Structures are given as structure tokens and as C-alpha cells.
Computed example of a mutant assay.
Amino acid sequence: MLADSELAQLKLETPSSAIHLKRGGQGICPRDTEHTRLSGDKASRQSLNKNTGSESILSPTVGVFHLLNGPLVYPRPVEAGELLAILHIGVLQRPIRAPMKAMVTGISVTDGETVDYGTVLFQLQPAT
């Protein structure tokens, strides 16, 4: 489970409770599945629609989806690494970034919506 989530260390302590998580690599990435495209590097991206070359950004976890600046107009260009949204997981926040320079052609969820692991968040058309 640690390797699947790229955690390098997990430490639990008691009597008054404590937890320590240490990340390895470049972030938390779920196991390779049919729709996995989360870490942002080309090797981990997988086209969901091979005919059009479009790809999707999937939710890396369960959480509440929030756009940064409210509703946006699509299509719109984004740069690799650009922050698109935030997933709130309790008190934690997980950034959702563009994995590459692309055109965001659509959004599949609404601001404030609770999403599951693997939910399609954004559709992308890679820049040429």
C-alpha cells in the first residue's frame, strides 16, 4: 500500500495519538488502472479517447472539488503544471494540476461536488 501511494514512511504513535507520513517520489499516485493518468509525466498518462487524442485528468482520491476562481470558460489553454483546482479531503488539500501544455476542452464536475477516486475532472486536448 505504501508503494502504491508513493509513501516512503508511515509512523504512528500513541498514547496521545500522532501520525507522520512521508512522501517519496513526486506525489501520491494511485496504482495503474485503466484510467490512471495522474502523476503528470508522459509515461503515466493514458489516452481515454485514442481517436481524437484527447485525455482526461482523473481524481486522485475522494474529496470535494473546488475550482480556484469559480467557473471558467472552456476551451482554454493551460501550461504544464498550472493549478486548475483543489480537492479538499477533510482538512487536507490536494492540488489538481495540468500534466502538460494543453487545451482544457471541458470540465466534468461542478464546483463543490464530492468526487470519487478516478472520477473524470477535466478533458484535455494536448497542444501541438
Rank of each mutant, 00 (worst) to 15 (best):
Q26N: 10
G81P: 09
A80S: 06
E55D: 10
V91T: 15
T119M: 13
S47E: 07
L7C: 14
S39E: 12
T114D: 01
G118A: 06
E6G: 02
R94I: 15
I57V: 15
D116Y: 05
G81K: 04
K42Y: 03
L2S: 02
P99W: 13
E13S: 15
H88I: 02
K50L: 15
A3T: 12
R23L: 15
Q125C: 11
V91C: 01
R97K: 14
Q46V: 07
P30C: 00
L58R: 11
S54F: 03
L38M: 08
H66V: 09
D4H: 11
N49W: 01
P77A: 11
D116P: 03
S59V: 07
A18H: 13
P15S: 02
A127F: 02
E55Q: 13
Q93A: 15
Q123A: 14
L87M: 12
T114F: 08
G40T: 04
T119Q: 02
S56L: 14
I107W: 09
L83F: 06
P126H: 07
G40A: 09
L83I: 05
R23A: 15
F65A: 11
L92G: 07
V104M: 08
T128H: 00
Y117S: 01
Q123R: 09
L48H: 04
Q125T: 14
V78T: 09
D111K: 09
L10S: 01
G27W: 15
G112M: 04
L2E: 07
A102E: 05
L68Q: 14
L92H: 12
Q123K: 15
V120G: 02
I96S: 03
L21S: 13
G24P: 00
E13T: 15
V120D: 08
G63S: 05
R97H: 07
Q123L: 09
L58M: 03
R97V: 09
L7Y: 10
G112K: 03
H88S: 13
S39P: 01
I57D: 11
